[in-house]
């Protein structure tokens, strides 16, 4: 895969480049500021980009704005956003165009190289990779009629992993269950939440988030 890395801290940028290259991908550009990031995204059109939310020159949400701007010009351009903190607000903005290919993870997740590259791959394939923290916040939102109340504990944990963007096989592996059991759970979740089932992981997440959005405040 061809990867663009945008991160202002030299050590972390260097580490990310090494990590990505260690898994056999090519880093086509490693940049350290917002305008450079937007430029690199538009000229290289990478298979996936890793972008820090906070970048120079303003050290506000330059990285996020660059990613959103690039995706407006190249719809569905896969971007994995890294941040020191995760916010529902930003997750919603990223997911708003409903095109998939979005990752939003805490920087801490880089510590677990396997999971991180797994998330990177999911984003590159057009799926979503949301940080468990933000998923928990999204699912923990108050709703007028709580549709999640109808779910069993097991179904709820399956839903959480689904919202992170995992496939049935990956969920099965996490929960130490068979894939068949998971697909039974997902069917039951979709039935209880009134969502038409679909194979596509990306569409599953969108369906879940859209449902929570619609029934929320």
């Amino acid at each position: 895969m061809r990867v663009v890395v945008a991160e202002d801290l030299f050590l972390l940028r260097d580490g990310l480049v090494r990590l990505v290259e260690a898994y056999g991908h090519t880093v086509v550009a490693a940049v350290g500021s917002g305008p450079e990031a937007l430029d690199a995204l538009l000229t290289h059109r990478p298979d996936v980009a890793i972008v820090d939310v906070r970048l120079p020159p303003t050290f506000s949400d330059e990285g996020l704005q660059a990613a959103l701007a690039a995706r407006r010009q190249i719809p569905g351009l896969p971007v994995l956003i890294l941040s020191q903190h995760v916010e529902q607000l930003y997750a919603r903005e990223l997911l708003a165009d409903e095109r998939g290919g979005i990752g939003y993870q805490l920087k801490d997740r880089v510590l677990d190289a396997d999971q991180f590259t797994d998330a990177l791959q999911r984003v590159a394939d057009g799926g979503t990779a949301l940080d468990p923290t933000v998923v928990a916040k999204l699912l923990g939102r108050p709703t007028r009629v709580d549709p999640l109340a109808a779910l069993t504990d097991r179904e709820r944990s399956v839903l959480e992993l689904m919202a992170e963007g995992l496939s049935n096989a990956a969920i099965a592996a996490r929960l130490f269950l068979s894939e068949g059991a998971i697909s039974k759970y997902t069917t039951s979740i979709f039935a209880k939440l009134g969502i038409a089932a679909a194979d596509d992981t990306n569409r599953r997440v969108r369906a879940v988030l859209a449902y929570l959005d619609g029934s929320g405040a």
């Binding site: 939310v53 906070r54 050290f59 506000s60 949400d61 941040s83 020191q84 903190h85 916010e87 529902q88 607000l89 930003y90 919603r92 916040k137 939102r141 108050p142 007028r144 929320g216 405040a217």
Partner: peptide, 25 residues
């Protein structure tokens, strides 16, 4: 708070509202 530093008051309050345990407009 990070959102306050990055986006300013209005978005920071929006982020706060999203994280609240009640529907907040």
């Amino acid at each position: 708070p990070p959102v306050l530093a990055e986006r300013g008051l209005v978005d920071a309050v929006r982020a706060l509202a999203l994280d609240a345990a009640l529907p907040v407009e």
